[in-house]
């Protein structure tokens, strides 16, 4: 399958301040690619370069072989864009806004109506009277109302309530089913996990990992909680990739990296009353790439977020 988006050594500096550094990634046609990172990691900078709004300091960004800066107007015939906080004109209604932006993209007047109804958007209110979530709905409708083969979205579900977030994920799934390519930046881990084929994790301007969600989850650690009929002998879990996190005799918490078969073989010989094996989600993986090495307020924020996530998800306590 051909590459829809190709970033080669893409770098952007704002004076002496880092934007993104040496990004290398290719997004295939028909793929939903998640670009994951906290605020300030460089997601929006990357998207603004993809849209031709800012010029790379070094490297190239191409979409279907066209240079994102030089060929921006031609590229915009083939892509739809949604920003995290679209700057709509407050005096215009959602209807006027969507009709104007639709006409600019060659979309029939009112073609947005079914989507607006689906997202329960009142199109006749001036945008300045809409709540943050409803303004974002205008953006979602605007992004999905056409049939451009590429969707570029920057934190698209920000401000949407959970029901609308679910609807948004359904729209992404429909776009993928229709063969459209989606490039989606987010710090919403659940959104990325549920919607994306592959994820790129960006940290302090650099891509630290690009992999399929399945591969990311599969290659990493699993938490295994055991309740045994009687305490296991010493060294019962001395197996490659297995670490005993805690053991109170009959209750054993293990962490397994890689192949789980040796452990399963060992468990078959033990008196196991209960077993729970949990795979890490994208959130676990995300924190893994940020864990312990992010300084300052960002690090504290991540640590806080991690603690909150751990508190909300008891199984994650075990895995850590």
């Amino acid at each position: 399958m051909a590459d829809a988006i190709e970033l080669r050594g893409l770098t952007r500096w704002y004076g002496s301040r880092r934007g993104v550094l040496d990004l290398d990634v290719a997004v295939q046609e028909g793929e939903v690619f998640g670009f994951l990172g906290p605020n300030g990691a460089g997601k929006t900078t990357t998207i603004r370069m993809l849209l031709g709004l800012i010029r790379p300091s070094a490297g190239t960004a191409t979409i279907w072989g066209l240079d994102c800066w030089r060929d921006a107007p031609a590229l915009h015939r083939r892509l739809a864009h949604l920003g995290s906080d679209p700057g709509y004109l407050g005096e215009m209604t959602a209807r006027q806004t969507l009709d104007y932006l639709g006409a600019m993209r060659g979309i029939a007047r009112g073609a947005w109506r079914p989507l607006a109804e689906r997202l329960e958007l009142d199109p006749d209110l001036p945008v300045r009277k809409l709540s943050r979530g409803n303004r974002q709905k205008v953006g979602v409708v605007q992004a999905f109302m056409g049939s451009e083969p590429l969707l570029v979205m920057d934190e698209p579900s920000t401000g949407l309530d959970p029901l609308m977030q679910r609807e948004f994920l359904a729209l992404v799934a429909e776009a993928r089913a229709a063969g459209r390519t989606v490039f989606l930046s987010s710090h919403n881990l659940t959104e990325v996990e549920r919607s994306c084929d592959r994820v790129g994790i960006i940290r302090e301007g650099r891509l630290v990992k690009v992999a399929t969600v399945a591969a990311l989850v599969g290659d990493h650690t699993r938490a295994v909680n055991l309740v045994l009929g009687r305490p296991a002998e010493n060294g019962a879990f001395d197996l490659p990739g297995v670490t005993v996190l805690s053991s109170t005799g009959q209750d054993v918490h293990l962490m397994v990296r890689g192949d789980v078969n040796p452990l399963l073989g060992r468990l078959a010989r033990l008196d196991v009353r209960d077993v729970a094996i949990s795979t890490p989600d994208v959130e676990d993986l995300f924190f893994r790439y940020y864990d312990g090495s992010v300084a300052g307020s960002e690090g504290r924020a991540l640590a806080d977020a991690r603690a909150a996530a751990a508190a909300a998800e008891p199984r994650e306590e075990v895995s850590r």
């Binding site: 849209l51 031709g52 709004l53 921006a72 107007p73 031609a74 915009h76 015939r77 739809a80 864009h81 920003g83 906080d85 679209p86 700057g87 709509y88 004109l89 932006l101 600019m104 993209r105 060659g106 605007q142």
Partner: peptide, 17 residues
């Protein structure tokens, strides 16, 4: 003004150069 408020991102996100 339109750059500051982000409207230009939307307008220039269309085929309009």
């Amino acid at each position: 003004a339109d750059v500051e408020r982000g409207w230009s991102d939307l307008a220039l996100g269309t085929p309009l150069g």
